[in-house]
């Protein structure tokens, strides 16, 4: 799946949790949770939202690899079929 489509999906899910955040303003290489104030419940809802939107299974063991926006895009692109 194309990185841009994944990025758009991330933006849509993030907007439901932190509506004030403009995805374009985020540094894709910096830790997401330092830039967007997401508590553990917010982060869980974020993962659930990505799972529902992209049909990608995201095991908890993989959370540690999902630090920056760039990490997330790479991970989801690789996981997503097609």
């Amino acid at each position: 799946m194309e990185a841009n489509a994944v990025r758009a999906a991330i933006g849509q899910v993030l907007a439901t949790i932190a509506p004030e955040v403009a995805l374009d303003a985020l540094d894709p290489a910096a830790p997401l949770r330092d830039q967007v104030d997401l508590d553990s419940m917010d982060f869980l809802n974020f993962i659930v939202g990505l799972h529902e939107r992209l049909q990608v299974d995201i095991p908890e063991a993989d959370y540690a690899r999902l630090v920056s926006l760039g990490d997330l895009v790479d991970y989801l692109v690789a996981k997503r079929p097609g």
Binding site: G11, A15, P19, E20, V21, A22, A25
Partner: peptide
Amino acid sequence: AGTGPDGAVTIE
């Protein structure tokens, strides 16, 4: 006036 999603006010 916000220009972000659903009228959110962004830093821009």
